[in-house]
Amino acid sequence: MKLMVKRLREGAVLPKRATEGSAGHDLYALLEEPVIVRPGGLVKIPTGLAISLPSSDYAAFVYARSGLAIKFGIAPSNCVGVIDSDYRGELIVGLTNHSAQPYTIQNGERIAQLIIAPVVLPEIEECDTLDETERGEGGFGSTGKM
């Protein structure tokens, strides 16, 4: 499979995998000047890139970079960004600062990771009953601590 990537502006960095075993391709900020993300703040960071997925059987997902999220509290504002197969606009990453300290994003900094995954589109059918399971209607945390 090939992911077609178009640079929209000079200086845009193509997505890269950090290691051979990396599931995601790092996305890089394309900024004219550094952006400060205040505690609890929201920012939109451009990448200068647009993509074309091979078909509607795939979608692209924007996930946090573990180090950025764990060390500095910087993670995607919507937890996981979904890029539909027919979207051709610029990839812009919304980020939130979950820490108590401001964080400055620099031009060229790795800000998120892009993962391509298959999409299953089920036919929706309304029903009056669902099959029974051992868990049943047990909610979040209903199966215990361990």
Rank of each mutant, 00 (worst) to 15 (best):
V62S: 10
E109N: 10
S85V: 06
L30E: 01
A29S: 11
G41K: 08
G81L: 07
D84S: 07
A23N: 03
I45G: 02
N78I: 13
M1K: 05
I92H: 01
L95Y: 06
K16W: 00
G141A: 11
L8I: 05
I70M: 11
E90Q: 12
Q113G: 10
K16V: 14
E109A: 15
F140E: 13
L42M: 10
A18V: 08
E126F: 11
E125F: 09
L130M: 08
F140R: 15
V5E: 11
G139S: 05
E32F: 01
V5F: 06
I74V: 15
E134R: 11
G73E: 08
L91V: 12
G81S: 09
D57L: 14
T19A: 11
G73R: 14
D26C: 02
A75R: 07
A23Y: 04
I51Q: 04
E32M: 06
R17M: 09
G136M: 13
A50S: 13
V43I: 12
G89Q: 03
A12L: 04
V43G: 05
N78S: 14
G136K: 08
Q106M: 15
P76G: 14
G141Q: 03
A18Y: 00
P34R: 10
V120L: 14
K16D: 03
V35S: 04
K44N: 01
E125N: 11
E109H: 04
I45R: 07
A50K: 03
D131V: 09
A29Y: 00
G48C: 01
P46S: 04
T47D: 02
A75D: 09
